[in-house]
């Protein structure tokens, strides 16, 4: 398992937002976490990425106990994330967005002098990554000038530049047009297949999740109510019930 949580728990006031969650995520797979609003998906994400500290339980990533680690340390051991609201550096060029992450990965972000060779190598790698997300040719544009779908792709590309073993994606399809959704979905699959990256997705678009995922965890009221491949989830009675009152059809 590349990512494993043990009895992860977090309360807000008297409410248990996440309750004894045991998540086991296999490498090189697309693993989705779904559930109705208020199921605790976002809290779970924040617990894993150290934005909030758990009341109990722990998080193991790649054999290391990373419970409560700050974001910058997680990035150093190759755990990346993308954000629900697209999060890129608007005023910097597309290329620079990627180069920042590459330099950070290489531990040279505080240097004030790079050899021409190093700079070229970084640029070459950045172009290569941009090619993977189909942003080649937009290197010099400001990130803020990109269309919404392309910004999301850039967001993912920044994560890729960290050479991650795992990327957590917080609603990568939210607020996208139908065409953009397809593009991003294709991109996600391609990352798994060509780079062997593990991808954990929190997503509302259940239909897309069913198509994309290798495995799905369903949460409700802070508990995990099902954890299985898509085909089994489809037939799971508890999941049906959980979604009965929601607006989703499976």
């Amino acid at each position: 398992m590349i990512l494993e949580t043990t009895d992860l728990t977090k309360h807000f006031g008297g409410l248990k937002a996440v309750n004894g969650v045991n998540l086991r995520i296999a490498p090189a797979a697309i693993h989705s976490i779904i559930g109705p609003n208020g199921a605790g998906k976002t809290t779970l994400f924040n617990l894993i990425t150290g934005a909030i500290k758990p009341a109990a339980g722990r998080v193991m990533f790649d054999g290391v106990d990373v419970t409560g680690w700050p974001a910058e340390r997680l990035a150093k051991i190759r755990l990346a994330r993308t954000f629900q609201r697209t999060s890129v550096f608007h005023d910097l060029s597309v290329l620079e967005n990627i180069a920042l992450a590459i330099r950070s990965r290489e531990g040279i972000s505080r240097s004030i002098w790079l050899t021409a060779g190093t700079e070229r190598a970084i640029e070459a790698e950045a172009c290569d990554i941009l090619g993977r997300v189909r942003l080649r040719g937009r290197e010099k544009d400001k990130a803020g000038a990109l269309a919404h779908g392309n910004q999301r792709a850039l967001d993912i590309a920044i994560g890729l530049a960290l050479k991650p073993k795992l990327i957590l994606m917080d609603e990568p399809l939210a607020g996208m047009s139908r065409g953009d959704r397809e593009t991003i979905a294709t991109l996600i699959t391609a990352l798994r297949d060509s780079l062997g990256v593990t991808i954990v997705v929190v997503e509302h678009d259940v239909a897309m999740v069913m198509r994309l995922s290798d495995r799905i965890t369903v949460m409700q009221h802070g508990y995990v109510i099902a954890d299985a491949p898509p085909a089994e989830i489809r037939d799971n009675e508890a999941v049906r019930k959980a979604y009965l009152h929601g607006s989703f059809a499976i």
Binding site: A75, D91, L92, L100, R103
Partner: peptide, 20 residues
Amino acid sequence: PLGKAWLAIRENTERARFIG
């Protein structure tokens, strides 16, 4: 790189943290 990293923080501190 230092100057660019500074600009990244000014623009989006949260994201800057998550790229390490």
